[in-house]
């Protein structure tokens, strides 16, 4: 079970870390001060979730690794986040809609993981859920605000939807390891989660009067370590200090 569990903990941790890093890129670039602070506050919460998850993964790993090793010394093909979280931050509409998709996913996921049979994961989820509820209130409000305001704002968020929508199915992908954990009630059935997620998302997009794009392609690969070129550049930025000065501490 440990191998499957480590794989899933890394999936969760890598997802939170890459989300956090993209949001942190807004520091000093937010559209106005309060929003700059909000974006980085959410980034900080997500970094906290990543830290808890990496610590847990390190603890159960057969290898002698720390949470920092897992975050800062693994290469692109070892990362398990979905492609959605590594996409460049784009403009504010793009960041906002992407964050909403992820917040909606996280709220449902952590609510379900609270009942995980694996106690340490249930504890992390209980903590993360409270913070995620603040995140979704904000990203939801902004989706409405942008969609129902000026033509330019509406155009930008529609463009973001056209770009991002087909990256979302990957959030619900599983593999043999994950299916084993689902069978053991360590993680929830992601196909059930997907139905709930889709219901909530459809409702909001409808309220926003946005057009869901039609397309035949769907992004995939993160769970197998197959990533877009964007992740390499992100790790380059994020891991530079640890690689240049191994073991460096704050």
């Amino acid at each position: 079970m440990n191998k499957a569990l480590e794989h899933y903990l890394l999936r969760l941790a890598d997802t939170a870390l890459t989300q956090s890093q993209r949001l942190a890129e807004w520091c000093g670039h937010g559209p106005f001060l309060e929003e700059d602070i909000a974006l980085t506050n959410v980034a900080l919460d997500l970094l906290g979730h990543a830290k808890l998850l990496y610590e847990q993964a390190a603890e159960i790993s057969d290898r002698d690794v720390s949470a920092d090793d897992l975050a800062f010394l693994r290469d692109v093909d070892a990362f398990k986040n979905p492609l959605l979280t590594e996409l460049p931050r784009g403009d504010f509409a793009y960041t906002t809609l992407k964050q909403y998709f992820l917040d909606q996913f996280n709220v449902l996921l952590y609510a379900a993981l609270k009942d995980s049979q694996y106690e340490p994961l249930a504890e992390i989820a209980t903590k993360a859920l409270k913070e995620t509820r603040y995140h979704i209130t904000r990203s939801r409000d902004w989706c409405l605000r942008l969609s129902l305001s000026t033509d330019e704002a509406k155009q930008k968020i529609q463009a973001a939807l056209d770009d991002l929508y087909f990256y979302t199915p990957e959030l619900f992908e599983t593999d043999d390891d994950l299916n084993q954990l689902i069978a053991e009630s360590i993680m929830p059935d992601l196909s059930v989660l997907k139905e709930h997620w889709q219901g909530q998302v459809d409702e909001l997009l409808n309220e926003c009067q946005l057009q869901v794009p039609k397309s035949g392609w769907v992004a995939t690969g993160g769970l197998r370590g197959e990533h877009s070129e964007h992740l390499g550049y992100m790790l380059d930025d994020m891991q530079f200090l640890q690689r240049a000065y191994p073991g460096c501490e704050w």
Partner: peptide
């Protein structure tokens, strides 16, 4: 409420409509 996110993770940013001063509110976390 001006923003649910304030100077630290545990605080939100508020403003008083009478004395017009901004202030931090320690968010309810249950």
């Amino acid at each position: 409420c001006i923003s649910q996110f304030g100077s630290t993770a545990c605080k939100a940013l508020y403003r008083c409509e009478d004395c017009l001063e901004p202030f931090d509110y320690f968010k309810c976390h249950v």
